[in-house]
Write a protein that binds this DNA or RNA. Structure first.
Length: 273
DNA sequence: CGGTGGACCTGCTGGC
DNA sequence: TGCCAGCAGGTCCACC
């Protein structure tokens, strides 16, 4: 579910409620996430204060005192929600983090593709989860020239390139299709055959699509919600994703669904080339 | 080296 | 109603 916009919306919604709070008891009800949850690293988070709520790629980072960062990744179906401390355990609530505000952060994840980790803050960039991450689309350095240089010597379809976290982070299956539609670029086009003008346009549309989604609270297809349980409403702004057979708002041709690398891609055959 | 396909999980939907 | 196939927002790894 959550791509960059959803994680950023989550981060912004939690920030005013968690920064400055102190972590209390941490309970792990089910360790079997994408990686085994390490109780020995989580338990000592108790008593540490939350200094900042940051985001890197699709990871939410809670920096704690004592050079520790609590790292949360939502995978496909993860949710992180602030609830009253005494609220009953939610379904698939695998990790519960009590806060000094008499609230608790509940990590729920039906499919268990998510992650909950603790690492030294000073070491994050060297951790294998972060060491090979690509460029952040919302950073100033993200532009057409940079995309072109990252793609140099490659021939992969542009959609796969956008979704390759070693090149560009945060763009997942929804926003890759949406940004390519806005840019008028066919998802199967090889990155070797994209002009600098089109790279510039693509950098712009990727960034703007993500910003638009953030400003509308993200995309809720089934279960995404921010840290306070609010759904996002960018779904109504999706122009191609999950809309096969419906007319393209720009040229009226029917939206198509194809499969690339095992994932659905949606595009308009009339205005994407 | 680079790209694709399968694996990891649970739950929902649609067709028969 | 029941059953089964197919699909789902992410990431990693084996294999060609």
């Amino acid at each position: 579910m959550p791509e960059l916009p959803e994680v950023e919306v989550l981060r912004r919604s939690l920030e005013p409620h968690v920064v400055g709070r102190t972590i209390g008891r941490v309970e792990v009800h089910n360790r079997d996430l994408r990686e085994r949850v390490d109780r020995r690293r989580l338990a000592p988070c108790r008593g540490r204060q939350i200094l900042a709520a940051r985001r890197r790629a699709k990871y939410l980072l809670l920096d704690l005192t004592g050079d520790r960062t609590l790292i949360i990744h939502l995978g496909m179906s993860g949710r992180l929600t602030l609830v009253p401390a005494e609220a009953p355990r939610g379904t698939h609530e695998h990790v519960s983090i009590q806060l000094s505000s008499r609230q608790r952060l509940q990590f729920r994840d039906t499919r268990r593709f998510g992650l909950v980790l603790v690492r030294p803050t000073t070491d994050l960039e060297r951790d294998p989860h972060f060491a090979h991450l690509g460029v952040e689309p919302l950073e100033d350095s993200f532009d057409g020239r940079l995309l072109q240089s990252l793609a140099a010597g490659r021939r992969s379809p542009v959609k796969s390139f956008l979704m390759d976290g070693r090149q560009v982070v945060g763009v997942g299956n929804i926003y890759a299709s949406e940004a390519l539609h806005r840019a008028g670029i066919h998802p199967r086009r090889s990155v070797a055959r994209i002009s600098i003008d089109r790279w510039r346009l693509l950098a712009q549309t990727v960034r703007q699509t993500l910003l638009d989604a953030i400003s509308q609270g993200g995309t809720t297809l089934n279960d995404f919600a921010d840290g306070l349980g609010e759904a996002g409403y960018f779904r109504v702004s999706l122009t191609v994703y999950d809309r096969q057979g419906q007319p393209c708002p720009r040229c009226e041709r029917k939206i198509r669904r194809i499969v690339q690398s095992g994932r659905s891609t949606f595009y308009c055959p009339g205005c994407q080339h």
